[in-house]
């Protein structure tokens, strides 16, 4: 069971059970749907912008523990960040989850995102972990459409 313990970190399970910012947002400036057809993860990410700053962000939908907790953690981290900062954070996150399982994780740099390091052992779950992020970036790019991780 060692690998499962590594994948389903307590923080992930906790966010899965009680996701933060888990609601629709009626006055969102942008909303983008994300869909992972392989496993049926389906979320909508809502963003309210103040100039270049993410004033508010939320999400709704359903998916596995990895996709849901990743979306939840993302919304917590991105509130108050600029578009550029958000993109920078995603780049770090993406680099980490797609790196080889035995490469070192810079815990300070990744902060809360480090709990998803276990995903590296399960390549099929990378899509779950990054689904909400892809939707978010698409929203920040001014797109108002759905994205898919396929």
């Amino acid at each position: 069971m060692s690998s499962n313990r590594a994948l389903y970190e307590q923080v992930i399970l906790e966010h899965n059970k009680k996701p933060r910012n888990f609601h629709e947002m009626e006055d969102a400036d942008r909303k983008v749907e994300g869909y992972n057809p392989l496993c049926g993860d389906h979320f909508t990410v809502y963003v309210k912008l103040n100039g270049d700053v993410i004033e508010d962000v939320s999400f709704s939908g359903a998916g596995c523990a990895i996709s849901k907790s990743s979306a939840s953690v993302m919304t917590m981290l991105l509130k108050g960040k600029t578009k550029k900062e958000a993109e920078g954070l995603f780049l770090k996150f993406h680099t980490m989850v797609t790196s080889s399982p035995d490469s070192p994780v810079d815990e300070d740099d990744l902060g809360k995102l480090r709990v998803f390091a276990g995903v590296r052992e399960f390549p099929v779950r990378i899509k779950c972990a990054t689904l909400a992020w892809h939707s978010m970036l698409s929203a920040l790019d001014g797109k108002d459409e759905s994205v898919t991780t396929e």
Partner: peptide, 9 residues
């Protein structure tokens, strides 16, 4: 309380 994907894992 568990998504099928997590069940499979």
């Amino acid at each position: 309380n568990a998504h099928p994907h997590d069940i499979g894992q």
